[in-house]
């Protein structure tokens, strides 16, 4: 892996973000909308459920940002004609995407923080976190896990100009399956099994564990197990995206689809 390329991806994405006003929509307006929607869904309840609502909004914001920004950067490169020069360089596309993904994760974090601020200041939810430092750590871990899933989905954008089709398919199921919208225990058993292989589901579980006193975690495991599972699953997702990306890179050179947009 080339750390210089990862850094270049991060820096390029940061400059694009700062100089392009269109990102205000996913970064500032969407979090507000997500929080509002979630609080309206749970408007008649109090206590930990409100936290579930705000947490859901936060994860929705992070996921939207991670998936949208990480995946669509390649679609942008295809449209912009910058994908070919990138491909022509000795650097792996994976390294560049990883750097961009790290920037998007950083923005996702700001997004999540903004949602908590909006919830507290505008909607007056009166949230109290049991372990704020632990919660923040779990928030970062969840973001990392979301990025690992986002990286795998972004391979579809390298594979085909129709990548947005795949990301759209995965966007909403992840909201549900990761427990961002409703607790995983409320899902049908068969769907719960899918949730268990998604690292963000464990991240959200760990966040609830640090936020809500007396919270009974998913599958009754300790928060340390949550952390371990997040790390293992995220690493597996990242490894899978690295391998898939290498195959996809070779495939697009073979079928000549690298420069189609």
């Amino acid at each position: 892996m080339s750390f210089r390329a990862v850094k270049a991806g991060f820096r390029q994405q940061a400059i694009q973000f700062i100089t392009d006003p269109q990102w205000i929509i996913p970064s500032l307006i969407l979090p507000f909308l997500f929080t509002m929607v979630m609080l309206f869904i749970y408007r008649d309840v109090t206590g930990p459920i409100v936290l579930q609502a705000v947490l859901g909004g936060g994860v929705l914001g992070m996921w939207a940002n991670t998936l949208f920004a990480s995946s669509f950067t390649i679609a942008y490169d295809r449209m912009n004609g910058t994908f070919e020069p990138m491909l022509c360089s000795p650097t792996r596309i994976f390294d560049i995407l990883l750097g961009r993904s790290l920037w998007n994760a950083f923005i996702g974090l700001l997004n999540a923080i903004l949602i908590f601020i909006v919830a507290e200041l505008i909607f007056g939810t009166g949230l109290s976190l049991m372990n704020p430092i632990g919660f923040f750590f779990m928030l970062i871990l969840t973001l990392f896990s979301l990025s690992s899933v986002g990286m795998l989905i972004s391979t579809s954008f390298v594979f085909t100009r129709m990548g947005s089709f795949f990301s759209s398919i995965f966007e909403y199921p992840i909201y549900v399956l990761s427990g961002a919208l409703v607790p995983i225990t409320m899902l049908p058993t068969s769907l719960q099994y899918i949730s268990y292989i998604l690292p963000p589901a464990w991240g959200i579980d760990a966040m609830k564990y640090s936020a809500i006193e007396g919270y009974e975690s998913m599958m009754g495991v300790s928060v340390y197990t949550d952390i371990l599972v997040i790390l293992i699953l995220s690493a597996l997702f990242l490894m899978a995206s690295f391998l898939v990306m290498s195959k996809v890179e070779r495939r697009i050179l073979s079928d000549g689809s690298a420069t189609r947009y």
Partner: peptide
């Protein structure tokens, strides 16, 4: 390849070159 495409338009000429210099390590 040339033409109108192939550049990051929000980046300056120097920033574009820096990005690609990084890709060539």
């Amino acid at each position: 390849s040339g033409g109108e495409r192939g550049l990051y338009y929000r980046l300056s000429g120097r920033q574009n070159l820096e990005f690609f210099a990084d890709l060539y390590n």
